[in-house]
Computed example of a mutant assay.
Amino acid sequence: MKKILVVETNQATYGRRSEATGLWLGETTEFVLAVQAAGYQVDYVSPKGGYVPLDPRSMEYADQASIKLYQQTSFQQMALAHTLAPADVDPAAYVAIYYAGGHGVMWDFPANQGLRQIAEDIYRHGGYISSVCHGIAGLLNLYRPDGENLLQGKQVTGFTTGEEILAGKRRIVPFLNQEAVKIRGGYFVKKRPYVSFALRDGRLITGQNPFSARAVAQELLTALASVQ
């Protein structure tokens, strides 16, 4: 069975602030619906395993298909209540890894060694690494087999500084995606705020914002089809 690993956050607040955040629902559901329709099985992992909080605002933007998936008991159990911990994952079982976003990931994705090892193993064995929106935080500290940062010399995208300002979160996030990518030698590419946009550079596929999950899925499916 062809499998893709979806990574989600355990972080429920903006750092130590009481303001709620978490997974942006559509960034998981829209991606999952697309790859499952193409015949791929999906597993879910988070930095700590177990419970994944939802950003309450994301429910306002979820489409009918996403809500229908969210209402399924199996999805709630696997994707939100009982996600796998990194230690439970065998990287060899997956052809790709996908980092979903939501502001929470900025706190618990970058430094997680378990997730890093999984992603690097998948990439080393010919698999694809993908992300959408803030999910690019999970890519910042990954390294290629040659020892270079994964983003070095690569064209990537993620939630832009302009979008962060429009979201009103510019001053409370721990870093800015555009700056973090540039520091690591990557080339940050962007389109207009909140317009669907995804791009592929080799075996690295990234999407700009919450409205880009389907585009990331399509880029990934096209890439996987070309190697089968």
Rank of each mutant, 00 (worst) to 15 (best):
L80C: 08
Y70H: 11
L150E: 08
G202H: 02
E8Q: 08
N149T: 14
V227T: 14
R116F: 10
E30G: 01
A215C: 05
R214E: 00
P210W: 00
S226N: 13
L84H: 13
F75R: 07
R184P: 00
G49K: 07
A65Y: 14
A119C: 12
L23W: 06
T157R: 03
K169W: 08
T13H: 15
A12G: 13
G138Y: 02
L80P: 08
N177S: 06
Q77R: 15
T73I: 11
F197W: 10
V7W: 01
E60D: 15
K190W: 04
I136A: 04
G147P: 11
D43K: 12
G127T: 06
L23D: 07
D88E: 14
D146S: 10
N149D: 09
R192D: 12
A213V: 12
K2C: 10
E60Q: 14
R116C: 08
Y94H: 01
F175H: 01
Y44L: 02
T222M: 12
E164I: 06
D88R: 09
H125D: 06
G135N: 07
P110N: 06
M59T: 09
V156A: 02
Q41K: 14
Y70M: 11
L199D: 10
L150T: 08
R116T: 08
V45T: 07
S131L: 04
G147V: 09
G39S: 13
Q155V: 03
T29R: 05
S196H: 07
R124L: 10
P193E: 03
M59W: 01
F188E: 03
G114C: 01
K154N: 02
D201H: 15
R16I: 14
R57L: 13
N177G: 01
I118N: 00
R16K: 15
Y128C: 07
G26V: 04
V6G: 02
A65G: 13
K3G: 00
L115D: 02
G202I: 04
Y128A: 01
Q76K: 13
S226E: 15
G138S: 10
Y123H: 10
N112K: 03
N177W: 08
K190T: 06
L204I: 10
I172M: 15
W107D: 03
S46V: 05
